[in-house]
Design a protein around this nucleic acid. Structure first.
Lengths: 220, 220
DNA sequence: ACATCACTGTCGGTTGTGCGACAATTGGGA
DNA sequence: TCCCAATTGTCGCACAACCGACAGTGATGT
């Protein structure tokens, strides 16, 4: 069971052929953290709180949101293999957003007091972490480009293509998609109607089914 | 002259009080790279080319753009102290965007063959680089939030506040601002007229002067 | 000095999208 | 089983922003 866990840790840090991690490295990483379970709706950490740990999501989905002064705004939604909380941790600043478990979540918690010495002792781990962080950065930059000069239909199509599971289902309410893309629920509804008319998707209660991925891609 | 250079390198990686770099670390970093000069309009690297080096901008401004299939789109504009090209480098992928010198640019070039062994040998440098990368990530995430649900006037006001030098001048044409924000030139013009009417800025040929930073902030 | 080019300022037409409102539908809990 | 809260579907209106076009103005080089 432990080795399976280590294999998963290795995978979570990106391509396995790049900078292969030695068993000792993995063991050290495993030692430095602990596995935690979170019930749906509970918070891994909250916006503004002192950043004392980073988390690697092992199972389930976590939603990152920011309340600010206005309406809550969803910064992103991450699943298995994502590292969260590390930005605030390394920058020695409070958490920038809140992380809430959407379903049952299993995560690997890395305490800052243990993590920093660990990375100093294992440069390979530090580099791997660096690559993972830059990966995230690149993804975010792509998102910026996707957001600019795109209609709601295009954005929705792209999101559905990303978010669909192997059965082609997306379990998101229209309101959630709206805040995720920063638009209104009505616009999402209109966009979905358009996609439905072109036989690309079908809609249901809190569920969207992708019928034709090619047709969907044509909209993006 | 060399120590001044090292001091600059240290500063470019964020707060100096965090994870202080030892003189040996700095010296090693200095050894691994070389200072290069770029004339205005020349490219440090081009989109799609093999990523063989990362650069730290020491003087001047570099514009990152992406041509894609469509119109060229400005991804960002970075100045002194920014690290560019590292994303592609560490991910072993071609450069994602082109980097062009806007004015005379002095940069520090780090060859990938030298950089990777260097970071393995100096964990502190790797961690510092990680922090710098995450810094960039956080900035980009902020940009996403700024882009969503904001009017052009607000975006322009925010941009001008960021970009103004100590004299309050911004040397950008309206077209440049437009591609930078992903809007049209006419909208920028209208937004500037609005800001001018409220005595926040004054406009000239290829030049915008910030008259009242508070009034400008009120628009953002 | 003059020609040329780049940039700014402005107009009307058109489109996309946010917003308020309301009816219809679904699903879960009492 | 029934009821209620959450979600979806659909109006019309208002407004911000894009687009094309064109005139005016500053900069630059021959």
């Amino acid at each position: 069971m432990e080795e399976q866990h280590y294999a998963w840790l290795a995978k979570s840090f990106g391509r396995t052929d790049y900078l292969p991690l030695s068993p000792e490295d993995l063991a050290a990483l495993g030692e430095a953290g602990e596995v935690i379970e979170k019930y749906p709706g509970t918070y891994l950490f909250r916006e503004g709180a002192d950043s004392d740990a980073a988390y690697i999501v092992e199972k389930g989905t976590v939603e990152l949101s920011r309340e600010g002064t206005d309406q809550p705004r969803i910064v992103g939604r991450v699943g298995e293999g994502s590292v969260i909380g590390d930005i605030a941790l390394f920058r020695e600043q409070p958490y920038y957003s809140s992380a809430r478990a959407l379903g049952p979540v299993t995560a690997f918690r890395l305490d800052r007091n243990k993590l920093l010495p660990l990375l100093m002792a294992h440069p390979k781990l530090a580099l791997r972490w660096l690559v993972a962080g830059l990966d995230q950065l690149e993804k975010t930059q792509r998102r910026v480009l996707r957001l600019m000069n795109r209609t709601v239909v295009e954005q929705v199509a792209a999101l559905l293509a990303d978010e669909a599971d192997q059965y082609g289902d997306v379990h998101l309410s229209q309101s959630s998609i709206a805040t995720l893309l920063g638009t209104s629920r009505q616009s999402i509804n209109e966009a979905l109607a358009q996609l439905k008319k072109s036989k690309a998707v079908d809609t249901g209660y809190r569920k969207i089914t992708v019928l034709n991925r090619d047709a969907l891609a044509a909209h993006a």
